[in-house]
C-alpha cells in the first residue's frame, strides 16, 4: 500500500515569529511534487519543520505519515520512518568519513529499531552498494574516504546529498533547492540521478525556483507558497508558467496574502540573521 504524508493546517514559528500559517499538503509515495514560491514564502521552513529542526516550533497542526503523528518525534525517528531532506546548505563534519557516516545512517534507517553500538550493515555488502551508487551518480569512489562535505565544492555537496538519498531510499524525499548554485552540467547529473531513483517506492517534493530539475522529474502537482501558505495548486504547466512569468500573477490573484508578504520577508530575513 502506498504511504501517505499528510500535512494538516501546519503553523510554524521561529523565535516566536509565525512563518507558516496553515499549510495543507498531501503527498503519496510514488508521486512527484513541485513546491514553488518567492523568497521568504516559507518553503525551507516547511522542509525544516517536517524534519523536526529544533528552532522551528510547531504551534498548531499535524504532520503524519500513515496516521503516525511526527510532531513529537526527534529528527532521527522521522528519518527512520522514511522522511529525507536534501539540504540546501549541507553541513560539513570534519574527521567523519563519508563511508562511515553513511554506513551508520543506512544501518539505522533500514533497521529502525537499531540502538547505538548494535550491529551495522555488513561492510562488504555496504561497500558494494555504495560503489555502485557512486558510479551511477558519476562520483569518484575516492569521495567515500573523504570527510563529509569537508572541502567539497557546492556541486559536490549537492551530489553527496543525492548519494545519501540513493543509499537511504526514503519514502518521502524533500529536496530543498538542490539545483541552486549548480552549473547546468551538474544540474543535469543531479536531475538524471534523481529521475532514476524516483519510482513507485519514493515520493519527491522538489523545492525550486528553477525549472530544470523539473524537466527530468515532471511533477504531478505543483504547489505555490506565498507568505506562509499554499495559495495555488496545479500541475506541471503551473510550474512552467511560474518559471516563465514569475510570481506577479500569483500576487495579483491573492492580494490580501501578498500584502502580508513584504512584512514577513523582512522578518524572516531578521530571523535568518539572528
Amino acid at each position: 500500500m502506498n504511504s501517505l504524508l499528510k500535512i494538516d493546517n501546519l503553523h510554524v514559528s521561529v523565535n516566536g515569529k509565525p512563518i507558516l500559517k496553515g499549510v495543507n499538503l498531501e503527498v503519496r509515495q510514488g508521486e512527484t511534487h513541485a513546491l514553488m514560491g518567492p523568497n521568504g514564502s516559507g518553503k525551507s521552513t516547511l522542509a525544516y519543520a517536517l524534519m523536526g529542526h529544533p528552532r522551528y516550533e510547531i504551534t498548531d497542526g499535524r504532520i503524519e505519515i500513515d496516521g503516525v503523528d511526527l510532531v513529537a518525534l526527534e529528527p532521527d525517528a522521522r528519518a527512520r520512518l522514511g522522511l529525507f531532506l536534501a539540504f540546501q546548505y549541507p553541513v560539513t563534519i570534519p574527521g567523519v568519513k563519508v563511508a562511515d557516516f553513511l554506513r551508520h545512517a543506512v544501518s539505522n534507517v533500514r533497521n529502525p529499531d537499531r540502538k547505538e553500538g548494535e550491529g551495522l550493515i555488513p561492510m562488504r555488502e555496504f561497500r558494494k552498494e555504495l560503489k555502485a551508487r557512486m558510479e551511477a551518480l558519476g562520483m569518484d569512489v575516492e569521495f567515500a574516504r573523504r570527510y563529509l562535505n569537508d572541502g567539497f565544492s557546492g556541486g559536490e555537496k549537492k551530489r553527496m546529498e543525492i548519494l545519501q538519498l540513493a543509499m537511504l531510499r526514503p519514502k518521502f524525499a524533500i529536496l530543498d533547492e538542490t539545483d541552486s548554485g549548480l552549473d547546468s552540467d551538474a544540474v543535469r547529473v543531479v536531475s538524471e540521478g534523481l529521475a532514476r531513483l524516483a519510482g513507485p517506492e519514493m515520493a519527491v517534493v522538489i523545492i525550486t525556483h528553477h525549472e530544470r530539475l523539473l524537466e527530468f522529474n515532471r511533477p504531478q502537482s505543483t504547489h505555490v507558497m506565498l507568505a506562509g501558505r499554499i495559495v495555488e495548486n496545479g500541475d506541471a504547466t503551473l510550474a512552467h508558467e511560474l518559471h516563465d512569468q514569475g510570481y506577479a500573477g500569483v500576487r495579483t490573484r491573492h492580494p490580501a496574502i501578498a500584502a502580508e508578504e513584504t512584512v514577513e520577508k523582512t522578518e524572516e530575513a531578521l530571523v535568518a540573521k539572528a
Binding site: R80, I93, G95, V96, H104, V109
Partner: peptide, 21 residues
C-alpha cells in the same frame, strides 16, 4: 541536526562528531 536527519540518534551523532574531531 544534520546527522539526526540521516537516522543517527542524538548521542550517536555527538559521538560521531567527537570521533571526527
Amino acid at each position: 541536526f544534520y546527522c539526526m536527519c540521516r537516522g543517527l540518534s542524538r548521542y550517536e551523532a555527538m559521538h560521531m562528531i567527537v570521533e571526527g574531531f
